[in-house]
Simulated scan of single mutants.
Amino acid sequence: MKQHLFNHWSEIKYLKDIVTNPLIEVGEYSYYSGYYGDQNFEDGCVRYLWGDIQSRELFNPIEQYGWQLDKLIIGNYVCIASGVVILMGGNHNHHSEWVTVYPFVEQLEQSYEPKGDTVIKSDAWIGMNAIIMPGVTIGEGAIVAAGSVVSKDVPPYTIVGGNPPKEIKKRFTDSEINMLMEMRWFDWDRKIIERAVPLLSSSSIEKLFDFYNSEVK
């Protein structure tokens, strides 16, 4: 009988506790809620990224080929739902401008092209079964709706959905977003955040800004 990675849909795993891949950088309190997908984060949610234990045992493209490999960079307090797929740079050897897209072994060293780091910034929420394409940056506080296929950058505090994703709405006004980007609450000391939880769990950005000015700035 298969051993499930998660015991219940309410269970989360903090990325800091489970990530071993040196090409994945994760912030504090970011988590993966993977019950329904029942996939390992490093080799299920994240795909085609060299650096997990198994791939390190098989080959080393940095030493063997001199490749500059893309990284996955995740900020603080990021929420990643079950079934999310983050496509990375391990298979960028297919060239649409060549006669064939087939990656012949003899051409692997020359054919690799990095796509750039994939960045999920702090306080973003990636909905169930969303797909994040290589080299994308998802801004602070952004929400990616379930089932979306994200192939372009997502601005901060913006909700997007669909394939290709379209902007559904900004979460707040421009002035409120400017305040949030100045405060960057997710970078505060944890003890200060705990004091601010009632404000963070409300819609009053101005009151949070007052707290920031008096207690943080």
Rank of each mutant, 00 (worst) to 15 (best):
K2E: 09
K2F: 06
K2A: 00
H4A: 05
S10M: 13
E11P: 05
I12P: 07
K13L: 11
Y14S: 07
I18T: 00
I18L: 05
I18Y: 00
N21Q: 05
N21V: 07
P22Y: 02
L23E: 05
E25R: 14
V26N: 03
Y36G: 07
Q39H: 00
Q39I: 05
D43R: 14
D43Y: 13
D43Q: 10
G44V: 10
C45S: 04
V46H: 11
W50R: 05
G51Y: 10
D52N: 15
E57Y: 12
L58D: 02
N60L: 06
N60P: 12
E63M: 08
Q64K: 14
G66P: 05
W67K: 06
D70L: 07
K71N: 14
K71V: 07
Y77N: 14
V78D: 04
S82G: 00
V84H: 02
V84Y: 05
V85Y: 12
I86Q: 02
L87N: 10
M88F: 08
G90D: 04
N91S: 12
H94A: 12
S96V: 13
T100W: 06
V101S: 14
Y102K: 09
Y102S: 08
V105K: 15
V105D: 11
V105T: 14
Q107G: 07
Q107F: 08
L108I: 12
E113S: 07
G116Y: 03
T118Y: 05
K121G: 01
W125L: 10
I126M: 02
M128R: 09
N129D: 13
I132P: 08
M133F: 07
P134C: 01
G141E: 09
G141I: 03
G147T: 05
G147W: 03
S148A: 15
S148N: 11
K152L: 03
Y157C: 14
T158K: 13
I168L: 15
K169P: 00
K170R: 15
F172S: 08
T173I: 09
T173A: 06
M179D: 14
L180E: 10
M181L: 15
M183P: 11
M183T: 14
R184F: 00
F186A: 15
I193T: 04
E194P: 02
E194L: 13
A196R: 04
P198F: 01
S202N: 00
S202W: 03
S203R: 14
S204N: 15
K207D: 11
L208K: 02
F209W: 11
F211K: 00
E215Y: 06
K217V: 03
